[in-house]
């Protein structure tokens, strides 16, 4: 097959080709985690629009792509935020970029948190580490239509006080009526007056009515495993629990095969699942 390339002058991509976006702001959240705020590009010639829980494939020029959840407010259409943990070559490259530089994005891909199912219910959000990033758009959405939902409970675990993301916002959210934010860290420091230990310990500080609640869980798989157990102990049915999963992704659209978990493609069937759809798969080691 011959390969001829022509200049198009275009910056808008498709599902397989990135759209280009200019970095408007970079905020370092912690020592190794930063938030890129980019001007929302057009995709397929249409304005960018996403649902809480969806992700983009974020492209660093010449280095590659990473699947990164969208962490901004879905109602603010002009910008997109990605909170990124610097761990590999792509995320390191992204971490060195400056305001005005361009990145590529493909997306938004994947399933969303079930905000419709949450209507009229208490929402219990349990997250660990960078798992809070894909839930931030959900929190924004819940707060924006506050009267449509019951209490909002946010349980958040991080390694240390310095590893906490969105500290200012957490503080603001905690002051809102009927919003409870409880944070735990694995290791405290001299200034830390909050809880120490795993996030599941925090369940003893809250009251949950399992019949009128929905749980959204995102974090390391081991943290999610114990959170699910704890929720079920407290009377949550599997169908009231939703999780967001992470797997290796190359294409983001169910064509490359990397993200499979049993019959599921995490990229297009997930990343957000109702627990009954994946519990039997998560119970298997190395599936």
């Amino acid at each position: 097959m011959s390969e001829t390339f022509v200049d198009t002058g275009t910056e808008t991509g498709t599902a397989m080709v990135p759209s280009f976006a200019t970095i408007r702001k970079i905020t370092w959240e912690t020592d190794d985690t930063f938030t890129l705020i980019i001007d929302a590009p057009q995709v397929n010639g249409l304005p960018f629009s996403f649902k809480p829980g969806q992700f983009n494939m974020v492209y660093a020029f010449g280095t590659g792509e990473s699947a990164i959840s969208i962490s901004s407010d879905p109602f603010k259409k002009s910008v997109i935020a990605h909170t990124i943990h610097r761990v590999g070559t792509v995320t390191s490259h992204l971490s060195r970029l400056k305001r005005g530089d361009m990145i590529g994005i493909r997306g938004p891909f994947g399933s969303a948190w079930p905000l419709d199912k949450a209507a009229g219910k208490d929402v219990c959000i349990v997250t660990g580490g960078i798992g809070i990033a894909p839930l931030r758009p959900t929190i924004y959405s819940l707060l924006r239509k506050r009267s449509e939902y019951g209490r909002i409970i946010i349980l958040y675990g991080a390694r240390s006080p310095l590893d906490l993301l969105y500290r200012v916002e957490l503080e603001e959210w905690s002051k809102m009526p009927d919003v409870e934010v409880i944070v735990a860290v694995d290791r405290g420091d001299s200034s830390w007056k909050g809880h120490i230990g795993v996030v599941t310990n925090l369940f003893s500080y809250i009251k949950l009515d399992p019949r009128a609640s929905i749980a959204m869980v995102c974090g390391p798989e081991v943290m999610m495993k114990f959170t699910i157990e704890e929720l079920q102990r407290r009377g949550f049915a599997q169908s009231q629990i939703h999780v967001s999963l992470e797997r290796n992704m190359k294409c983001g659209i169910g064509l490359c095969g990397h993200c499979q978990l049993g019959p599921k493609f995490i990229c297009k069937d997930g990343p957000v699942f109702a627990l009954p759809d994946v519990q039997y798969l998560l119970e298997r080691k190395e599936l």
Binding site: F5, V6, D7, E11, G13, V17, F20, M102
Partner: peptide, 17 residues
């Protein structure tokens, strides 16, 4: 799948014919 050219600070997508 695609080629991308750096143009100043920006990037430009080159389409495969």
């Amino acid at each position: 799948l695609f080629r991308i050219r750096r143009k100043g600070k920006g990037l430009e997508f080159m389409e495969q014919e």
